[in-house]
Amino acid sequence: MRIEVDWTRCDGHGLCARLLPEKVGLDEWGFPVIDTPEIGDDLVPHARRAVGACPALALRLVPG
């Protein structure tokens, strides 16, 4: 699995970085910075939680 940010919708709320700190960091304006988007099996539940919490529905979990 991989996480993707839809940049047309992301508003820099920053909740994803609180729920998935292993993968998501924030730049100085609060927008997510993701170095390695691949999500291991152990992190999938946390990634799903982050996807569900995004206020802008801008985060998604895609296969591959």
Partner: peptide
């Protein structure tokens, strides 16, 4: 279904 609906724009 919020998380699932986020999958498509």
């Amino acid at each position: 279904a919020r998380g699932r609906l986020a999958a498509s724009a």
